[in-house]
Amino acid sequence: MHLTVGPNQFFWKPDPWSALYDELARIAVDRVVIGELICSKRLPFYQDRIPDAIETLLAAGKKVAVTSLALVTLKRERKMTAELAGLGAELGVEVEVNDLTALAMLPEGTAFSVGPMVNVYNEGTLAWLASRGATRVCLPPELPLASVAALCQHARGLGVAIEVWGHGRLPLAISGRCYHARLHGRTKDNCQFACEDDPDGLTVDTLDRQPFLAINGVQTLSDTYANAANQIEALREVGVSGLRLSPQSTGFARLCHLFRQRIDGKTDAAALVSGLDEIARGMRLSDGFLSGVAGADWTGKPLQPL
């Protein structure tokens, strides 16, 4: 199984942003997806650092992809998306499509990967994407194991590698409205970068003060960090070829290392989970989409074979 680090979903200052990719170059992850997924207004703050970060990662032997935005509406965003294919070719990396607008802009015949924000729920859509040049698909985190299994089986015949969400706050929704700006009584156009002080998103509680969701600009995430520590054997058995880890502001390199050890059979799920607690005490976990009833559930148990 390979480990992919997904695009950073949050708005980080340029220095911590660069530090993340310098660190990833030094540790045992296989693929890194880089670029802006959530908000086009953030990109100018670190855009000029992307080529260097990619070069560092490639020199360290990592596979690299550049992501599209998850929702493309504005003229500026369409232009950005149109430029992605050229940028990828120039830097020698592929594009990860997270909105079909990016696929619409890729020259026909270009190989690409598909991120978890694209709705790949069934064999028909998988086959259509493969016919357009998809070589790797990270499935939407909402899918249960039975769907993952059916898709993996179909993907083998298509020569497509299947990746599943391994760790991180779940991307649950995307909107035209910026919730960080709304919270500060501003509109999206005049947001004044209200999201910049929440490098892991801002936790949203229920009225019983139970942590529930997290807001990140136009994105809504889970409060919990979805974690597949207990499902790795089951995922491997159905043919999943990689796990996706989503960057967080504390202990991320250590987290990647713990996952590597778990995948390589050097530690078990319990050791991984307790290791995570040492990294970020009080980080709440979930595995409900893969093996529970609701996404927020934490079963903490291996999946029964299908």
């Binding site: 998850a70 929702l71 924000m117 709705n119 729920y121 939407p140 985190p141 909402e142 779940l170 649950l172 929704a173 995307i174 909107s175 035209g176 409205r177 529930f212 969701l213 809504t220 889970s222 409900g288 989409f289 529970g292 009833v293 609701a294 996404g295 927020a296």
Partner: peptide, 19 residues
């Protein structure tokens, strides 16, 4: 309020989703 077809808030809380 969210982009339709791109929202799994409901299945996160209940297990049942629009998609």
């Amino acid at each position: 309020v969210m982009a339709e077809g791109r929202c799994s808030l409901s299945s996160y809380a209940t297990g049942l989703s629009p998609n």
